[in-house]
Amino acid sequence: MRIREKGLVLCIVGLLLFVLPLILNSYPISHVYAAENSTSANLKEKLSALQKEIASKAAQLKQEVNKNLQNKAYVGMVTLKSEASLTLATDSGAKIVSINQDSEFSSNNKKISKYSLKILQAEDFIAALGDVDENGVLTAKKVILWPTPSPEVKTHLWGQVISIADELVTLTTKEGKNVTIAVSSTDLEKDGQAVSLSQLSKNNFVIVTGVMGKNEILTADFVYIYSQPAFLKPKKIATPSAESATKSAKPTTPSTKKKSP
């Protein structure tokens, strides 16, 4: 081969050796770099969206929690008093009320016109109004002396009507117990409408509220009447003769027959 031709070949080879790798490397790199770039951009977007969602839900939760902590009332009897706090016995247990210089005192009790922390004493029935902290301590904005309520005597029961006699209705309850209710001055309701006693029938189901008297008759304030397919089945109780017959019966063991091979 002539020198000129050799040189040309060497040039071409060199060019190929130099340029080709560049071409081969740059294309996949840029492709991969572009792919990586788009992947990381997607991830960043998703992360950002997730952060916003978390922040929004956290704000919602905080609002809910605040809603549940603000504007609360602890009502009960004072069991303990100090300069800065009270302990009340409420229906939901002992509650602590924090008192500060902004706490206002007033009285809804006709016997006491003016009320203050100095006058307040144990066994006073009060309503402490304010906001509650995460420990359940209420910071009182207002403390009101309230008349002690009379004990709750209202009760309710569910049952099926088994008899109606004038203004006395007998029901059988879920436990199979018979209860008599007096419906003289009672609100009766059926299908959302006020009805009279004539609308009450045997086998109706009722929900009753009222006060149980000492004579075990419930004076009903409210009777809700409805029908449903299922009937309460009375408990099956064996008669004495059936019980004695059962006792005298001798148990028999079943005979086992061996199969012949």
Binding site: A73, V75, E152, W158, G159, T173, I207, Q228, A230, L232
Partner: peptide, 14 residues
């Protein structure tokens, strides 16, 4: 003043 609200649910069997 104070109001005590009682909510009771009854099943079909009482």
């Amino acid at each position: 003043g104070p109001n005590k609200i009682s909510v009771t649910v009854f099943s079909d069997s009482g």
